[in-house]
């Protein structure tokens, strides 16, 4: 696979380490009353879709940026890739 790195262009997926579902960026607030349940949900449960999936890849053998890659899990087609920090800070969607 080739990952379209937003800064570096297409890079071989072998340069990356895969983490998983991009919802992992949304760590629950530990002060909320149901924090333990919220964390269990966050840590363990996944939609695991057959289709479009937003997921986290780390460019370990590259520039060490975390990317949010939008990829189809049935066809492996990649629809887009963004810097995770941009996504989190709301710079992009």
């Amino acid at each position: 696979m080739l990952i379209p790195h937003p800064l570096l262009g297409p890079r071989d997926a072998q340069e990356f380490i895969y983490l998983g579902d991009a919802t992992l960026m949304h760590r629950p607030d530990a002060t909320r009353p149901d924090a333990e349940a919220a964390f269990c949900d966050y840590v363990f449960l996944r939609h695991n879709p057959a289709g479009v999936h937003r997921e986290l890849w780390f460019h370990e053998a590259g520039d060490r940026s975390w990317l949010v890659v939008t990829r189809n899990t049935v066809t492996h087609e990649i629809i887009g890739a963004e810097l995770a920090c941009d996504v989190k800070l709301g710079v992009t969607q």
Partner: peptide
């Protein structure tokens, strides 16, 4: 598993 159980409204501790 996730596809079928989602029809029952469940999310699973599973990735495929």
């Amino acid at each position: 598993s996730s596809r079928v159980m989602s029809m029952a409204g469940m999310r699973l501790p599973i990735e495929s």
